[in-house]
Design a protein around this nucleic acid. Structure first.
Length: 524
RNA sequence: GGUGGGUUCGUAUAACGGUUAGUACUCAAGAUUUUCAUUCUUGCAAUAGGAGUUCGAUUCUCCUACCCACUACCA
């Protein structure tokens, strides 16, 4: 059968999407685009208790920031699609808005004998679990244990009908067949077999809130939305047999999607999966965008930390997948071309914050000076510098950026690297001052300063540099000591940009002012 | 506990069953530079352990160890 490729990313709006989720969405997107198919965003909000306000908006915004744009889904074309249309025959894409369609599928299964009504209360189930645990066993709700429980398999038809009418906390459970080997295939992991005796009778539909559970909603929606591949996290692998059985029970085996289970993203140190805590502790974001929870606690985001979305996406793509070549830098379009599920790693990938920074540094270098200068403007503003304050305005910024971009990882670094091209130093690093601001040095430095300011060649880096060097060498003065002394006056410390570079930006007058200021503060 | 998945330098990964087990990040050293950074060069460092199949195993099989996930009327 030749079907159009359709994949979906189906998050639950229970909080901000974390970077592992973004990676899952990305792989889905890449797979869809590579195969000329559709990428669908579906919101799985069938758990009314865990709903978190703002989470859905967060997910949409995060994906948009990454450039992972759905062809269909709640935010297709930038607005919420709630009603079916020619372009969106599968709408709505929010399961809470689809609630009406699931019950009949659950009941269809009951009629066909693949499911049954269960009337056990939560309290009864908890008791059964506690008892089993007390005797060192695990309670499994299956065809053996349910014989001792209240359900449509043990009660008479009349009793069942009566309870269905009069009570509202019953569920529909899948009837897992006994001692049957489920044979499954995973695009990443290969062939897997599981015996149904280790599985339990999962709840498919809950009368109490008239909502399906994940398993039912997922299978029904994937079927209705004509999903061809399900690419999701490894935590779903244990549910795969159930999902296979459901497709079989519905008679949808022919159109059953193929499955690919992605390994988890692991924390950089120690064991276990990446969590919010690790980010706070080790100082890196685990979320694409900043998030503030109901208690007002903020979690940092890659966007707010200054990462470029391209760098973030590229980094994520390489975490658990590789192109088989030595290329590391990929645009989203290149990823679409190169991506392949069979090069996805089976083992979990430990996240490496250093590598994430490296990616950003590479992307920063790739950007042109003019656009980086634009991005620098708000940073400058935070430090009280307006573009108009700079001689030459934007031109000045473009030149600054050109000079320093190779030294930076983030745009915000520009300020730390080159603040003294905008402000005169008011403090001098004590250690450096002690080392470089010595009488035998600053006497020479002042002479150099006056010489250079009297020099009437073009005021640009190379000529300033040669004037400086010729003068100092000509006098046989110690180059290093004089230069460092000058740098101390210009930057307030013993490290920084080249003297000629700095001078070309700040000009003669400012040069002399800074020399005098240093002399006034440090003595001369 | 049970079930399933996983295991190549510290990290991410490469290697038709045949390579001196490669690359990138990190780290270290050296070169360059007026300092710092950049850049360049070099270096450190791995097939979890044990059987088996094979002329030959990182690669295939089994066992052990360890790690992870799942084991809800959550997703």
């Amino acid at each position: 059968m030749n079907r159009r490729t359709r994949v979906r990313f189906a998050p639950s709006p229970t909080g901000p999407l974390h970077m592992g989720g973004v990676r899952t969405a990305l792989y889905n997107y890449l797979y869809a685009k590579q195969n000329g198919g559709d990428f669908i965003l579906r919101i799985e909000d069938t758990d009314s208790h865990r709903f978190v306000p703002g989470a859905e908006e967060y997910i949409i915004e995060a994906l948009r920031w990454c450039g992972i744009l759905p062809d269909e889904g709640v935010d297709a074309s930038g607005h919420v699609v709630e009603t079916p249309s020619e372009r969106h025959p599968h709408a709505p894409y929010r399961q809470s808005q689809r609630r009406g369609i699931y019950r009949k599928y659950a009941e269809q299964l009951v009629e066909a004998g693949y499911a049954y009504y269960a009337f056990d209360s939560s309290a009864e189930l908890e008791k059964a679990r506690a008892e089993a645990e007390a005797s060192g066993q695990t309670f499994i709700y299956n065809q053996t244990t349910c014989k001792g429980l209240r359900n449509s398999l043990t009660l008479s038809a009349e009793e069942t009908a009566h309870l269905l009418e009069t009570t509202t906390d019953w569920t529909i459970r899948f009837r897992m067949p006994e001692n049957t080997v489920v044979k499954m295939d995973d695009l990443i992991r290969g062939h897997i077999e599981v015996n149904t005796d280790t599985l339990d009778d999962k709840v498919l539909w809950k009368r109490a809130d008239e909502l399906p559970t994940y398993h039912l909603a997922n299978i029904v929606d994937d079927h209705l939305m004509e999903i061809t591949e399900v690419i999701r996290g490894e935590e779903w692998l244990p549910s795969l047999p159930l999902h296979y059985m459901l497709y079989k029970a519905f008679g949808w085996e022919d159109s059953m999607p193929r499955f690919a289970h992605l390994s988890l993203l692991l924390k950089p140190v120690g064991n276990g999966k990446l969590s919010k805590r690790d980010g706070d502790k080790l100082g890196f974001p685990v979320f694409p965008l900043q998030w503030t929870n109901a208690e007002g606690e903020k979690s940092r985001g890659y966007r707010e930390d200054g990462y470029f979305p391209e760098a973030f996406v590229n980094m994520l793509a390489m975490l658990g997948w590789n192109p088989g070549t030595e290329q590391e830098l990929f645009s989203l379009q290149e990823l679409v071309k190169a991506f392949s599920l069979d090069k996805v790693q089976k083992a979990g990938a430990k996240f490496n914050p250093d590598k994430a920074k490296w990616f950003n540094k590479e992307y920063l270098r790739l950007k042109d000076d003019a656009s980086l200068a634009e991005l620098f403007v708000p940073v400058l503003k935070e430090h009280g510098i307006a573009v108009e304050d700079c001689p030459g305005g934007m031109d000045y910024l473009v030149k600054v950026v050109h000079l320093i971009k190779e030294r930076a990882t983030f745009v915000a670094d520009f300020w730390d690297i080159a603040w003294y091209l905008f402000n005169a130093p008011t403090e001098y690093v004590e250690k450096d001052a002690a080392k470089f601001w010595k009488e035998e040095n600053y006497e020479l430095a002042f002479k150099v300063a006056h010489f250079v300011c009297a020099y009437d060649g073009p005021w640009e880096k190379t000529s300033i540099e040669s004037a400086l060097e010729e003068y100092i060498r000509g006098n046989e003065w110690p180059m290093g000591k004089v230069m460092n002394c000058l740098r101390l006056a210009l930057t307030g410390s013993g490290s920084g940009l080249g003297i000629a570079d700095i001078l070309s930006f700040i000009g003669k007058d400012e040069f002399l002012r800074r020399m005098e200021a240093a002399g006034a503060k440090l003595g001369k």
